[in-house]
Structure formats: C-alpha cells, structure tokens
Design a protein around this nucleic acid. Sequence first.
DNA 1: GGTATTTGACCTGA
DNA 2: TCAGGTCAAATACC
Length: 322
Amino acid sequence: MESSSWPESLPSNRIKAMQELTKGQVLTNNLHEMIGQPEKIESDIKSVNGVVVQILGMFDNTLSIMDSSNLISEPHNPINGFRPPNIKDDQMPKVSEVSDESIKTKTLMKKKKGCYNKRKNAWTSTNVTFDLIDDGYAWRKYGQKTILNSKHQRNYFRCSHKFEQGCQATKQVQKINDKPSKYKITYNGRHTCNNLQRSPQIIVETPNPSDNSILINFETNTFIENNKVNTCFPSMEHTHKEGFPSLGHLKCEEVSSYDYHTLWDPTVGLSQVSSKSMPMMSYGQDYEEMVSPGVFSSTCSTYDYENDATEGRDLDDFFFDF
DNA sequence: GGTATTTGACCTGA
DNA sequence: TCAGGTCAAATACC
C-alpha cells in the first residue's frame, strides 16, 4: 500500500508503521483463509510458513519503526534479526552498509578492560523456559557470574560474530529452578550479523488432546485452538529427551511494554529446536540437557528483569502455552 | 596451533 | 558501596 493513502498530516514513522500493520492484516487474512483449507495447507506448507514469517517480520518492522521514532539508542538496522526466507543474501544489506560510525563509537567506548557502556535502553528480550532454546545463532560464552540471592550462576554469551561483523547481540542464561529445570534467557541487542547457523524453522509439539492452550488470532482478537495451530504446521516436530518436560509446559513471561506476543523473536529468529545438541550446552555447568523451543516476548524498551521480582512471581500470571 | 572456555579483575551505574 | 556486566589472560580442548 502506498503512503499516499494516508493523511499527509501523519508523521512519516506513523505512516510506515500503519503500512506495516496493514500488510500484516492482509497476510493474516491470507493465513486465515489457509486455515480454512487444511488439505491445501498440507500440500503447500512452505507457503503457510512463508506467510507466518512475513507476518512476524511485519511486527519486527513495525516495532523498529516505533523504536526509531522514540529515539531509542539503537538505530534501526534493516538486517537486524528478521530476514524473510525468500530474500537471498545478495539482496540483503551488507554489514558494511550498517553505520560504521556506530560500531566505531561502541568500539571506542570499550578501550579499557571492563570499561563498557551499559546499553540501558537497548533492545531486550527475556523469556523463561523449562528447556534451553537453540536460537540458531552462534554464541560464545564470555563470562559467568554468581548472582546475589541466586544459587545458580548467570552465564554471559556474546554473538560469535561480534568482532568480524560488529554484532552487538548478547544473551544471558541463568538457571532459576532445579526441578523442573527452569531457565531465564535474556537477549540484549539485536543481531547485526548475517550468520544464522540454520534456517529458521517453526516447531510445535504434536497435538495433545488434553492440551487446551490457545493462541491469539490477530485478525479477530479471538483465539486459535492448539489443534488448529498444529494443523497449520503439520510438518513441525518437537524432540525431547525421555523424562523431559513437554513443550506444553513452556510458558511465556510478560516482559514487553507492547501488547505483542508471538513465536517470533526478532533478535534470535524463529524459536526452534535442533536434533543436534546446541554448542552452548557443553560450555556451562547448567547445560546438561537437551533443548526444546520456547516462547519469546520482546520489547524495544528497557526492562529491568531483576527488579520485576519475576523469580518470586508466579509465571502463571501471564503466559501462553503451546 | 588454533579456537573456545574459564575465571579473576576491572569498570559502571544504581 | 556493591552487584552486575565485560574484558582478557590463562587454560582446556580438538
């Protein structure tokens, strides 16, 4: 849709955001039509996945527009996180096209050991999961810290491409519960690298008749029953070790200042699971278990997880099941 | 020998 | 002042 269809008095950022949302509405309608034709979905699952990815990308774009309009410290980077699967590498902006100045500035800020600029207002995403998430990106552990009033250490990871591509994404992983194992994973900053290890894939556990969990239908503000979701993605799979909590136990914690929840995390891509054990698992002391997908909630605003007393808060306060 | 992880030190911000 | 986040030298692994 062209910008000319919007009132000229609207700020350009708002127009762009509305354009993105309108695109999302159209795509959601397309998806809704597909849901009504299960036989078509099975024969053309790639198209369904493509629509889902485009919708999720629309959210990312909209958030980025709103982000930049709010002058949040991190400028929008067109290659951050989301890349539609139909876009080839050579169609994506090269990392060198990203503001070199911003990278240089950040580099200069870290001249001395331990001297860094805490990106208080950087994009953050926090989720709590009963399993570890393989987000498809390559991470390198750079630190481990004992946290006050926490019996488990917090592990710090940075993007493996931090130096070669200037990617500023980091994540923190902390075990917050033993039985069942529960992990808090916090992502800081968006990926500016182009090095997803694997192509994103959406994976949902096979239907459980007793599972009455729901998803929000963005088009109608109603809910999609779990079994319909699985109908949408019949090729999806979920693997877990014997004795592991099922995916149905995964919960999404509300950390966003937006009323926005999807399977998509614009920093890490689509939540996914690999039959291979993720490299991270062999590094930290707490990573002895297989991974399975989690559910993300993202925010472009600052979120102080520790002060939210989340660890003492019942996760049932706000979550979506799958 | 190259790469990844560990861990103590250092620095920032509350 | 102190908890948390990051750096970088030392160490481990392949």
